[in-house]
């Protein structure tokens, strides 16, 4: 019997991608590394013969990952996560909308679409609040706004940028939380790990990419429930769900479609990559069985 082959679509090989490849091989599968930067994909092909039928999407560039995912899907290749999931997770405005629509607690958010209306959005939330770009990660351009003067300066700075995305103002209430948030990793129908992320000493942002540290966090049934509901709301797959604690309740503020897990791995004995690989192989097996059944019919 042929070994199952799973593609790993990357544009930069980090620890996570090496770990996924290693775990695939440990489970007797082949990992085919696919450099997204080097793909040339004729859209009139019926399928891309060199690409396996199931691919784990691991691009660090959101737009590259999203567009190559939709191209693969159009040619019958299944990618985890799907382009639909990536789009919902990669755009904070869409994420907020889908969380609210599904009744999942999330910070109060107001959005405005010009510098002229931005101050009104900020005043609607009140001070302190947080301004975020709708696309972006690692805490970039996430700014706490504590007074009107800061708000005016930020609006002016954004207005002068050539990028039209800078005049979409996504304003969120600042949650009164402990100096930490919770990163949960959902794989299919399971929450495989939950860790606290503490901000570095000189920062209020908890991103591990900015020097935040992790500690184990007990997965309560309430936490598991809200994480799985958030994961399902965006379409499911392999997701990093970020949760804040607010006066005894959980609030989901972000769902990450291409989750980094090096930081979380330091706080758990379980191999996060192995759980991701197990999930991918189970989907690959289902696809292979379906293909065999339809071939027999």
């Amino acid at each position: 019997m042929n070994k199952p082959t799973i593609g790993i679509l990357y544009d930069r090989i980090r620890w996570e991608e090496k770990e996924l490849a290693s775990r695939l091989e440990s489970r007797g599968a082949l990992a085919q590394m696919i450099d997204a930067k080097m793909q040339v994909l004729p859209l009139d092909s019926s399928r891309f013969d060199s690409i396996p039928e199931l691919v784990l999407g691991r691009c660090v560039s959101y737009y590259r990952g999203l567009n190559i995912a939709s191209t693969f899907e159009a040619h019958g290749i299944r990618i985890i996560n799907s382009s639909e999931v990536l789009e919902l997770c990669g755009n904070k405005l869409l994420t907020s909308q889908i969380l609210s629509k599904n009744g999942i607690a999330t910070p109060k958010t107001v959005v405005a679409f010009s510098s002229e209306s931005a101050m009104q959005a900020i005043e609607t939330i009140g001070f302190p609040c947080v301004m975020k770009p709708i696309v972006g990660s690692w805490g970039r351009q996430v700014v706490p706004i504590r007074d009107r003067e800061t708000a005016e300066a930020l609006i002016e700075m954004r207005e002068q940028q050539a990028d039209s995305m800078q005049t979409i103002f996504y304003i969120q209430e600042m949650i009164k939380r402990p100096p930490r948030d919770i990163r949960c990793i959902a794989v299919g129908d399971d929450v495989v790990t939950s860790v606290y992320r503490y901000a570095a000493d000189d920062s209020w942002k908890t991103n591990v990419a900015l020097g935040g540290r992790t500690e184990p966090c007990r997965l309560t049934s309430e936490l598991e429930d809200i994480v799985l509901r958030a994961a399902r709301a965006v379409g499911g797959g392999i997701l990093g769900v970020d949760v804040m604690e607010r006066e005894g309740e959980y609030v989901v503020h972000e769902v990450n479609g291409t989750v980094e897990f090096k930081g979380a791995q330091t706080s758990t004995d379980l191999s996060i990559a192995d759980r991701m690989v197990e999930y991918a192989l189970s989907l690959e097996q289902i696809s292979a069985e379906k293909a065999a059944t339809s071939a027999q019919a």
Partner: peptide
Amino acid sequence: TAESVKEDWGE
């Protein structure tokens, strides 16, 4: 030469 960090990079 590696690509430099872009605005859309992240998770």
